[in-house]
Design a protein around this nucleic acid. Sequence first.
DNA 1: TACTCGTGGTT
DNA 2: TAACCAAGAGT
Length: 368
Amino acid sequence: MTSEIAPHLLAWYDRHHRSLPWRVTPDDRAAGVINDPYAVWLSEIMLQQTTVKAVKPYYERFLERWPTVKQLAGAEDEDVMRLWAGLGYYSRARNLIACARAVADDHGGRFPETAEGLSKLPGIGPYTAAAIAAIAFDESVAVVDGNVERVFTRLYSIDTPLPKAKTEIKARVSEALPKTRAGDFAQALMDLGATICTPRSPACAICPLLEDCEAGGAGNPEAFPVKPPKKVKPVRLGAAFVASRPDGSVLLVRRPDKGLLGGMRVVPTTDWTARQDGATDTDAAPFPASWEKKGQVIHVFTHFELRLNVFHALVTSDDKSAGTFDAFLDARWSDAEDLAGEALPSVMKKAITIALPEAFRPRKPGKD
DNA sequence: TACTCGTGGTT
DNA sequence: TAACCAAGAGT
């Protein structure tokens, strides 16, 4: 028998689709309006493991600053990292730059039009390649993200734990694909997952796929998808050293391109790579000064909790020891008025705020 | 396959 | 409030 999933879903999508900055409405699509592949790509990279609400302002700022992929390809690396700061998963920003330059240099400024071609570009994996191909180029491919995994494990009561279940999920999605409207189908599934088929307390009563859904019929949708048990987060200890000068400038260094917070600006810190490096005193300070402990930042990363002791020192002009920072990458003093615009990850804004409560406070223009 | 890689919002 | 979660990719 033929699956009725696509017709049911697309009819619902036509009425209930979300309105999003990077999305062309179904009506406009039907009228021939084409999605800009660059805009689709940019939004999809930002949306990886990131909520729509968090992405919106970043997406708007990026598109305004760099309206085309060629312009983004010509951007300074640090300018991109500055605009990405706060969004997390910073390897995405580094891959964003690499991908833009690959498209500009190797593809004449045009994105490949198939999932196969797209997936060869940096930062574009199986999901993103399929999403761009379907939404921007109407390729009929299965677009499987966390929403689709949830919807389809419920539709067919797939109790194989993720990620092992992905093979079966992709097969089920493929057989449900409509002959046209591949992009709308993909986005409709994601909208359904985000608004109806939610992780907890799904709204089965108003779901357009209720009559197609095994778990919905059985009344146990929350039993799916089955996920492996998660591990406990270890605690790591470290220290951050905020050095400031009388004019309010702050010493920043840059982290190596690879690894945690790669390519981002930070104040000098201990490694906090070990489970507990225990460097909570001034032994590990970048240079001798009157370091004073100001407090502790507790920041939860994906796979560990960081407890960062924050030290501050006011460095005066006659402090000769504060001149060489050979152990650090690209050390420089950031002016007080520039600090908010630096490529600082959230954990570093927290740490600097402990030492300098006024550092990121909006200041009145015209004063001082 | 399993681990690394951020952050802020919900429940 | 601790746990869970969000349009995953790279290694």
